[in-house]
């Protein structure tokens, strides 16, 4: 039976580079904890736990992409950033990765810093910057929120995949057949498609939460979505 390995496994990146990224990830996460404290109150804390649990669940759901022999799964940075903000969001994804590495043998423990850097830090940061920018200039309708969530997901997944290219450039252990550029292109291509899947999941989830509890969507900061007149909300998204 095929093993379910979803993150960077041991031995792929050399020890010293992995250690440097572990130190980097730890420093950034510590900073996130400091900043997250002003967001975390009695109401947001359990919700953030729910976001982490939800991301864990959806990460198990590998979906097929293009060739059929390649799959992808949610990384969760965009979802977390939109629902609970960048600081708490990065911590949510990090918690998922730590549980996966320490309990489910997914992603080497020595590689945890690399995985956290790509998915929890780069992925969440890219998504949040884009969301903050777009929601500042665009109207806050359900359709716009869905579109913003989609675009932020695609960008954040591709950015996360290029984080691995950086790490492989610094500490890759095997010569690449078609060079670093080839790896970057292959990863960007596959993750563009994974990003589409991630975007659909993220947009559906965010719009659902925004309809039920708009006050729980950090990116809206408690402001309700303005409903377009007599047009039912986003097609296909319930």
């Amino acid at each position: 039976m095929e093993t379910l390995a979803m993150h960077i496994a041991n031995g792929i990146i050399d020890g010293p580079v992995a250690a440097v990224f572990a130190a980097f990830a730890l420093a950034v996460l510590a900073f996130c904890v400091l900043r997250a404290r002003s967001d975390l109150d009695d109401r947001l804390a359990p919700m953030a736990g729910l976001v982490a649990a939800f991301i864990f669940a959806v990460q198990m759901l590998n979906f097929p992409i293009f060739t059929g022999a390649v799959s992808g799964h949610l990384l969760g940075g965009a979802l977390a950033a939109i629902l609970v903000g960048p600081w708490v969001g990065a911590l949510c994804v990090a918690v998922v990765l730590i549980v996966q590495a320490l309990v489910f043998g997914d992603g080497g423990v020595a590689m945890l810093g690399l995985n956290v850097t790509n998915m929890a830090i780069f992925g969440t940061a890219a998504a949040y910057l884009l969301v903050a920018l777009l929601l500042r200039v665009l109207p806050r309708t359900p359709a716009v929120l869905a579109g913003v969530a989609f675009v932020a997901s695609v960008v954040s997944v591709v950015v996360a995949s290029q984080g691995f290219v950086l790490q492989y450039w610094l500490g890759g252990t095997t010569d690449l057949g078609n060079g670093l550029g080839g790896l970057a292109a292959t990863l960007a291509g596959s993750h563009l498609l994974i990003g589409v899947g991630e975007g659909l999941i993220t947009a559906t989830t965010v719009v659902t939460v925004a309809k039920v509890r708009p006050d729980l969507v950090y990116a809206l900061r408690g402001r309700r979505l303005t409903r377009p007149v007599s047009v039912p909300a986003v097609g296909g998204v319930r």
Binding site: E2, M6, I12, M60, L61, N62, P64, S71
Partner: peptide, 13 residues
Amino acid sequence: FASPHPDGLDSSL
């Protein structure tokens, strides 16, 4: 019902 195939990262490695 998840796809058993290697993911984007794994497949390029």
